[in-house]
Design a protein around this nucleic acid. Structure first.
Lengths: 208, 208, 208, 208
DNA sequence: CATGAATGAGAATTCATTCAT
DNA sequence: TATGAATGAATTCTCATTCAT
């Protein structure tokens, strides 16, 4: 208490918490929730098991926060794209590409979306966040329909289909560790084309 | 009572086996793999736990067979649709509708696709079967592209997107127990429209 | 299911359950609740840890049942004594002696009364059962006061004091393993004298 | 700042030590040993956990000292009463009342007698101190018997019964937080009557 | 010296699998 | 043969104690 510690200690605290979150995210993205046991998380994060409970009241809450953090971050980025002045199809394509590129670059958020956790409490949170995530796409669809840029359709269903489409393409039959940059770009382009055509009918190439 | 039992016992064996598979499928479709513990499966099937091990060497193998059976059955039905003489888009729409209707009617296969099993061995099988399942749609796409009925595209990616789209729409944010027939039909139609437009550009309504 | 098992299996079931209860009671009486860990109970009872959970949903419930069983049994015996036609002081002395003799003969119930368990849930039950136990003595006191056999006094306080007096004398400073029969009888007599005089003033020796 | 600190620091040390003991006593009296975890003691005392280990080699030793301090203090007060020139029954009643009043007024020593500590080492000490505590009453009894003021009886057993009686009445079925002063006085009087009659036969009211 | 973050051994609980009957 | 009681390895979570800062 008497020592100058704010910066130093705060940083360590933040580091530990972040390291635990990062380790959990890594394990979940690689092997699903099943591989993220407390002992494994502790080892991966380089801390003791007890340390995890200093920052998270339970394994379930840790998982929920991993989901929440990942989703909030994505939603923030995608919402920015959704609010751009460009036409709805353009924004939609940009949002899909943005998400897919990040997913292909790092620990795969998509997995956290589809992997069913053992803990029902976490599962509830997962479904909730999935919904919130889908709402970003729904907003673009609704906006586009109002402006006549996107044909009339069931926005809820289409949003769910969109989310399913690109998460599945990321974690599904295709090898997630496609190394070459070119292959990744091809997949990204294929997914964008699919998604745009799915909701717009004709795919127009007027975006980044 | 101990003599002449081959036919009878064989049948009972078969019955037991099927009841175990059915019970497992029911539990998985309702609560994911996590709710399909051996004891629960035994109770649901009306057999003892030991009995399960007479037919399946392990819980993992039981799960794999549940997946396999569900997928084989679906593939058989969908393959028949895929081999019809109608245009590719028509067949694609029919296949999607066929799957969605069955999923909405009974124990939800889609769930088995999404739910993450605790056992990695089962997970491997799940991914393999997902791929096989997607191949049915890929075949329609490839055929349609050859015949010029479907625009050129990455058939692997599109097939994965399709599978993701309709499974997500079935288990995702939307309540899986949408009771009314009308609502179910609306959802089915929305999903078909989405899928057809996604791969064909313009959705043409010339099918069942 | 098809075998004749009722008698045999039921007995084994009962045996296991009883052995677990007995083992727990033994451990609690010897070393308090703290020494009755699940692993220790299992070892003492000659079963596996998992077996304990076949009969008791949790350690706390096991402890509660140990308390409950011990108290119910005591209460039954003491209530019979309390309902005899003899004068209240006689019944009181007989009840005290009856309890003390049993406590000195076997696993010491008194300990379960005073030892505070680590689990608050068990503690609540302990206090509840203590109260029920004290009520037997309170009933004798109230009855005796009505009949003029016992001087007027605060029955609640006196009952609590009585219970405290003889449990303390049993588990307190005196060595619980006083081996000789003579010593045990002396202690029993001393406790009876104390209790009778405490509530009756003059101790009259007209009972068994 | 680093020089001339002996007096100051000693005092702070003493203060810290006392605060730790007081905090522990408070927690034990309120929730038993189970609520007096090192972290809770540190928070309550306003010191760090590490600080506790500067004054006490282990949690067990801290608990032992809390017991010891509480009992020594009581013994000192009660011994003064025991050594008064008044008749033995008078002194006994005064001692009981003195103890009961303090117990009802503040953190309840009686609880520390009854609560079973997790640590066997503490339990041993608890039993030892209980015995020492009982010896004060035994001394009055022995003295009274010699002087013919108290009838002949087993002094060890009676002393144990006395201690059990009034501690039980304090922590037992009756609500420890009886708020009104009148109720407390009634209970005190009931306990004194019980104890006096228990060892003297007839209760004589010639004392404070 | 004082702090409180970090450790890790220990305890409860679950459930796939086995095997005596 | 069919049963389900029994096993025990595996996993989560707690908290006394230590030690770098």
């Amino acid at each position: 208490m008497t020592y100058r510690r704010s910066a130093l200690m705060e940083e360590r605290l933040a580091n530990n918490r972040d390291r635990i979150l990062l380790a959990t995210r890594k394990l979940v993205s690689e092997g699903g929730f099943r591989d993220a046991q407390i002992a494994a998380v502790a080892t991966t994060a380089g801390v003791s098991t007890g340390m995890i409970y200093r920052y998270f009241p339970s394994k379930a809450e840790l998982f929920v926060e991993v989901l929440s953090a990942a989703v909030e971050q994505e939603i923030e980025i995608l919402t920015e794209i959704a609010n751009r002045p460009s036409p709805a199809p353009t924004r939609l394509g940009a949002a899909v590409v943005s998400f897919v590129r990040r997913a292909l670059a790092g620990p795969n958020l998509a997995y956290a979306f589809i992997a069913e956790p053992v803990d029902p409490e976490v599962d509830t949170a997962r479904i909730r966040y999935r919904k919130k995530f889908g709402d970003v796409f729904k907003a673009i669809l609704v906006d586009g329909m109002e402006k006549g840029e996107i044909p009339q359709q069931d926005a809820d269903a289409s949003a769910a289909c969109l989310v399913g489409a690109f998460t599945e393409a990321l974690v599904g039959p295709m090898d997630p560790r496609r190394t070459t940059r070119a292959t990744k770009e091809q997949l990204t382009e294929s997914i964008r084309t699919f998604c745009l055509r799915a909701v717009c009918g004709i795919w127009k190439s007027d975006d980044a």
